[in-house]
Design a protein around this nucleic acid. Structure first.
Lengths: 156, 156
DNA sequence: CTCAACTTGTTTGTATACAAACAACAAGAG
DNA sequence: CTCTTGTTGTTTGTATACAAACAAGTTGAG
C-alpha cells in the first residue's frame, strides 16, 4: 500500500501537511470549564449558610438589588431560561424567601420580590459568598484572578 | 442619627475600616463560569454532527482512548459521578454507540466499550470538536487562550 | 478462614438547564 | 377596531449532576 512514487514525493512535501495534532480532551475548554464549575459548586455548598444553590443565591442577590422584577426579566438578568427561573422561584417561594404577585399593569407578567426573610438571607449570605469566590480562586494570585475574570468575561 | 462625637473620631479613623466593598454578582467567578459554560454548550450543540451532548462526547472520546474500562473508573476519568456516568452509558448504549459486559475477573465491575458505530463516530466528531473549542475561544488571541487554560486548570 | 472495610454499581430524590409547544395577553400597523 | 406580531409565563420531556442509601462482591488484617 506504500505508493510513494518519486514523482509525487515533491508535491506531498509541499502540500500543507495535515499533521495529526492530538486531540486531548483534558485540554479542551469545555471539559475544563465543567470541572472548574464542579469544584466551585462543592466549595459553594460547603460554605453557604442555608440550603441555597449557586443558582438560587444568584436570584436572591439579584432580587435584593432590583427590589421587584418580572419573572422573565429576572431570568434575563441572571442568565437563566424562563423555565429554569420558574422552577427556582417556585422553590424559593416554598422556602418563604420570595413572593410573587400579578402585575396590575400587565396581566401577563408575574412580579417577583424578596420576602423579609429573603432580604435578611441575602445580607446574611454575603460574607460566605465572598469567601466562596475567594476559596474558588484560592490557587491563583491576585493578578491572576483579575486576568482570569477578564478573559472569561470575553467568552460570555 | 449622626453620632460623630470628636472624642471618637480618632478611634474610628484608626480602626480598620470595614469598607463596604460592593458585591457584584456579575464579577463572581461562579456566575461567570456558568455563563461561559452555557455559551460553550450552545456552540457545541450547533456544531456536533449527531445528537451528542458535551458529556456524551467526553465519554465517547475517553472510551476511544481507553478501549475498554469499568463504568466507575470511566466516570473518574471524565470527572463524572457514578450515577451520572450510568445514565450517560445507558443512553449511549440505547443509541448503539457503547456496549457493556460483566467483568469475568470481578463480578462487581461492568466493562464498557465503544461499538464499531461508536468508534466511527468518535473519529467523525473530531473536526467538529476542534472547531467547537476554536469557536468557544474565538474572542481570545492565541496567547490569551493558553493563559486562560493554564489558569483554569489550576482551579480544578 | 473470617470478618470488617472498601469498591462497584444501582436506585431514588432533588435541582439546574434548555427545547418545544402552548395559552393568554399586549402593542402597533392598517 | 382588527389582526398580526411579539412577549410572558407554563408545561412537558430530556439530560446532566450529585447526595444518600443500598446490595453484592472483593480484599486484607488477624
Amino acid at each position: 500500500m506504500a505508493n510513494n512514487s518519486k514523482a509525487h514525493s515533491e508535491q506531498v512535501a509541499t502540500v500543507p501537511r495535515k499533521r495529526k495534532l492530538p486531540y486531548v480532551l483534558e485540554d479542551q475548554i469545555g471539559f475544563v470549564l465543567r470541572q472548574v464549575s464542579q469544584r466551585h459548586v462543592v466549595i459553594f455548598s460547603g460554605l453557604i449558610p442555608e440550603e441555597l444553590t449557586p443558582t438560587q443565591f444568584s436570584v436572591i442577590n439579584m432580587l435584593d438589588r432590583l427590589g421587584i422584577c418580572s419573572q422573565n426579566q429576572l431570568g434575563r438578568f441572571v442568565a437563566m431560561d424562563a423555565a429554569t427561573v420558574k422552577g427556582v422561584i417556585f422553590r424559593l417561594t416554598l422556602k418563604g424567601l420570595t413572593q410573587t404577585e400579578p402585575d396590575p399593569n400587565d396581566a401577563r407578567q408575574l412580579l417577583v420580590s424578596l420576602t423579609d426573610k429573603g432580604k435578611a438571607l441575602a445580607d446574611a449570605c454575603l460574607p460566605a459568598t465572598r469567601q466562596i469566590s475567594e476559596l474558588t480562586l484560592g490557587p491563583l494570585t491576585g493578578p491572576e484572578r483579575d486576568r482570569l475574570l477578564v478573559l472569561l468575561k470575553k467568552l460570555i
